[in-house]
């Protein structure tokens, strides 16, 4: 195995506003290897979707990348724009959106949408593109794909539509998939099917997947490694079993304590006091310190803890040590 498919290094995304520059993504670094699913988790506004959009080059103006690097199989892509970036999108990196009901053009058949994507990126004939479109639908588990290829999006159920969306993201055989809340809009039973499908495609094709979600259950189910984001920064990064089982960052520990689990019995769910700071009012020092029970003087002062300056796992000066009672 050669290096990671996606490498994000000290990525900074800034939004200039009249009242100063906001940083929805602040010095974020992570790698995703081929065949690996990295879960990116956090509250609304933690910067997880913004990271995904930055990677695929779909930041809405005026948000823009101001520092750091994004490497796709070692090649820098953060400086690309326009045509060069368009050629990469779909071909080398695909994206799956939250709502399958609105992701598909209602006036074009799924076959049209698949073949136009394939023809755009691959040097194949129209007949071959159609063949591949049918194969793509079969691969994501659409029954009777050959008959369904002429159907319009409204003729599919929500879960089936998300399968079509996945087929569309994968039909030009990209190396990286950014899945932004792919299951949030679906029924719980359909969620599990879609997660299983993503996992299978990731394993079979060796695609690197960045799975953005706020749902810890989805992360625990699907991801190999997990990155926890808080106020635009990485709070914790590690293998999913360790992060879920033995959270080191007090924020992650709080998230875990506030997630219901089937095996947890009738334990009362804990709540993290306070709310995530607004982007224009991120406190000095560790951004989590106003809500943190473990905070000490050092946490309130610059420099704030970063993954790189701490143990590489949790951005915390006083991480939770394994086997210790989880603080609320």
């Amino acid at each position: 195995m050669t290096g990671p498919v996606l490498s994000v290094r000290d990525l900074v995304v800034e939004i200039p506003t009249r009242r100063g520059v906001l940083r929805p993504v602040d010095r974020v670094s992570y790698d995703i290897a081929a065949g690996e699913i990295l879960g990116v988790v956090g509250e609304s506004g933690a910067g997880k979707s913004m990271t995904g959009n930055a990677v695929i080059g779909l930041l809405d103006r005026p948000a823009r990348i101001t520092a750091g690097e994004i490497l796709l199989t070692g090649e820098p892509i953060h400086g690309l724009n326009g045509e060069a970036l368009r050629r990469l999108r779909g071909r080398r990196m695909g994206m799956i959106f939250q709502d399958p009901l609105t992701s598909l053009n209602p006036l074009l058949t799924v076959g049209d949408q698949l073949t136009e994507t394939i023809l755009e990126h691959l040097p194949v004939s129209a007949a071959e593109a159609r063949k591949r479109a049918i194969a793509a639908l079969e691969e994501v588990g659409i029954p009777a794909a050959r008959q369904r290829i002429g159907s319009y999006p409204h003729e599919f159920s929500g879960g089936m539509r998300q399968r079509v969306v996945i087929a569309l993201a994968l039909c030009a055989e990209p190396e990286l998939i950014v899945a932004d809340e792919p299951t949030t809009a679906l029924d719980v039973s359909v969620q599990a099917q879609i997660i299983a499908l993503l996992k299978r495609l990731c394993r079979e094709r060796g695609v690197a997947v960045m799975l953005v979600t706020h749902d810890m259950g989805v992360i625990a189910e699907a991801a190999d490694r997990v990155a926890v984001m808080y106020a635009g920064r990485l709070a914790e990064l590690g293998p999913v079993r360790e992060v879920v089982g033995n959270a080191r960052h007090p924020y992650t520990a709080g998230l875990m304590a506030s997630t219901p689990s089937a095996s947890g019995g009738h334990r009362r769910l804990r709540q993290i006091p306070g709310a995530m700071p607004r982007l224009d009012a991120v406190p000095d020092g560790c951004p989590f310190h106003p809500r943190c029970e473990r905070a000490e003087a050092r946490c309130r002062q610059a420099p704030e803890p970063m993954l790189q300056t701490c143990d590489g796992r949790a951005a915390c000066w006083f991480p939770v040590v394994a086997d210790e009672e989880v603080p609320a």
Binding site: S103, P106, E116
Partner: peptide
């Protein structure tokens, strides 16, 4: 969203 998704699929602006 479907326009955004079309962009994410790398379609040309004209299309």
């Amino acid at each position: 969203d479907y326009i955004r998704f079309a962009r994410a699929r790398g379609l040309r602006e004209r299309a």
